[in-house]
């Protein structure tokens, strides 16, 4: 029974490709800026208060790794792509219930668990397209401007982001089974992912409040550590995977019990 997986996978292609194109344009912009920024980096950094760098976890901005981690991964990947996954997750169930697609889907010999799991499994399309697409774009972009990014670190920055993005999608999925309208579910999921990211960033500013970000998924994915210091925090990735499975379980249980 993979008909739903098949259909849902196809549905994700278009928006994923659009996002890859957005990243290609962003990368082109930043890579073209890097050679000139590299020289004036000290001046540039003085222009911003320190907390700005702490908020985004920016360091070693004068290296291509630090620069790319800061410009592309710490905001666009963690926030934008995180929100994109939360958005998709939030539409998976609520949207179909609302426009009555779910009535027809469930008239087939397919369980609600299977429907939910196939829809989540279909996230492989954006995961693969975005991770492969953006990794290739960044790698080639660095070569074009005469720099070199460690391909292992680059692979890891993408690989270790997969559990993070899955958690974002699962937050969306939980919202999707709770709310009746896709719009409410999306608003809820988007805000939650954004606020949690913000909470993580702000809590890092003061060691006394660092605990406040412990529930933020972004706490367990450190793009700068991976790219600049080549530190791969596997236990953190496991934490995220467990959180993903728990949220998925919760969402599935709610979905199987509710009226649609």
């Amino acid at each position: 029974m993979t008909a739903i997986l098949r259909l849902e996978s196809r549905k994700r292609i278009r928006s994923s490709v659009v996002l890859v194109v957005v990243f290609a344009l962003l990368s082109a912009l930043y890579f073209s800026m890097f050679p000139s920024i590299e020289e004036d980096i000290e001046e540039l950094m003085e222009g911003f208060p320190d907390f700005f760098f702490d908020l985004f976890g920016i360091e070693a901005l004068h290296t291509i790794e630090g620069f790319i981690a800061a410009e592309i991964y710490s905001f666009f990947w963690v926030v934008l792509v995180g929100i994109y996954f939360a958005y998709i997750g939030a539409g998976l169930i609520a949207g179909d219930v609302r426009d009555r697609k779910m009535d027809l889907t469930l008239s087939n010999p397919v369980s609600r668990e299977s429907v939910a799991l196939q829809k989540v499994a279909a996230l492989w399309t954006p995961l693969v397209l975005l991770n492969v697409g953006v990794a290739v774009i960044v790698y080639i972009g660095a070569i074009v401007i005469g720099e070199h990014i460690d391909p292992v670190a680059l692979t890891m920055v993408h690989l270790l982001s997969v559990p993070y993005l899955l958690v974002c999608a699962a937050i969306g999925l939980v919202a999707s089974v709770i709310f009746d309208r896709a719009r409410s579910a999306r608003a809820m999921a988007l805000s939650l992912v954004f606020v949690l990211w913000l909470l993580d960033g702000i809590s890092q500013l003061d060691p006394d409040f660092e605990w406040a970000g412990v529930l933020s998924p972004s706490r367990y994915y450190d793009e700068t550590a991976i790219l600049v210091r080549e530190e791969y925090a596997y236990p953190d990735a496991v934490v995220l995977l467990v959180a993903f499975l728990v949220l998925l379980g919760v969402a599935t249980v709610i979905f199987t019990r509710r009226d649609i």
Binding site: M1, T2, A3, I4, R6, L7, K11, D96, D99, R100, K101, M102, D103, L104, S107, N108, P109, V110
Partner: peptide, 29 residues
Amino acid sequence: KTNIGYLPDTLGFEERLTGTQVLDHFARM
């Protein structure tokens, strides 16, 4: 449900698919 057919009052088809693709989709199930 293998042996049930259902025609809902509001037909929630996958709007972007063609009629053939919609039928293919249900046929797989």
